[in-house]
Amino acid sequence: MLRPHPAVLSRLVEEYEALAAVEAVGGAAEPASRARDLEYTLCVSTGTRDVKDALETAHRWLASATAPETTTARKTLPVGEPVPARSASPLSRPLPLRRTPPLREPAVLAE
């Protein structure tokens, strides 16, 4: 089963738990549409059918995740520093030209 990126899963869990806390304090009888959307997304992302199971699974996955919870930015070079040369890759070479047979002149039909 595919797993969501830890940063995405973490954001979903945090947003859902924040909305659940606000709704618990406000005493809302029915969850708001955003909370329902988050419940659905968490369940689909974790392969569960109940939001409690989805949260347990998400917390377990986040605890065991080896990837950082934030997206990695590209390394930036200081201004004026030359860009390092890339290593030659077999895919970076131009493809050899293929020879095609010459086109023949169309035959002229005798009138």
Rank of each mutant, 00 (worst) to 15 (best):
L2G: 02
R3M: 10
R3A: 15
P4L: 14
P4K: 12
P6H: 05
A7P: 07
V8S: 14
S10P: 00
R11T: 12
L12Y: 06
L12P: 04
V13R: 08
E15L: 13
A18M: 13
A18P: 03
L19P: 11
L19A: 03
A20M: 04
A21T: 11
V22Q: 13
E23M: 02
E23W: 07
E23D: 08
A24R: 15
A24G: 13
A24E: 15
V25T: 10
G27I: 05
G27C: 09
G27Q: 04
A28G: 06
A28L: 14
A28H: 12
E30T: 12
A35F: 01
A35Q: 15
A35K: 14
E39V: 02
E39D: 10
E39G: 11
Y40K: 14
T41W: 05
T41H: 07
T41D: 09
T41R: 14
S45Q: 09
S45R: 10
S45G: 00
T46Y: 11
G47Q: 06
R49V: 07
R49G: 15
D50R: 01
D50L: 00
V51M: 04
V51C: 06
D53T: 00
L55G: 06
T57I: 00
H59D: 11
H59I: 00
S64I: 03
A65D: 09
P68F: 02
T70P: 06
T71P: 05
T71I: 05
T72R: 04
A73W: 11
T76Q: 13
T76A: 13
T76K: 07
L77Q: 08
P78K: 06
V79G: 05
P82V: 03
P82I: 03
P84K: 03
A85Q: 11
A85D: 13
S89F: 03
P90V: 11
L91P: 00
R93H: 10
L95V: 14
L95F: 12
L97F: 02
T100M: 07
P101I: 01
P101T: 09
P101K: 08
P101S: 09
L103A: 12
E105P: 06
P106W: 01
A107N: 06
A107S: 12
V108C: 01
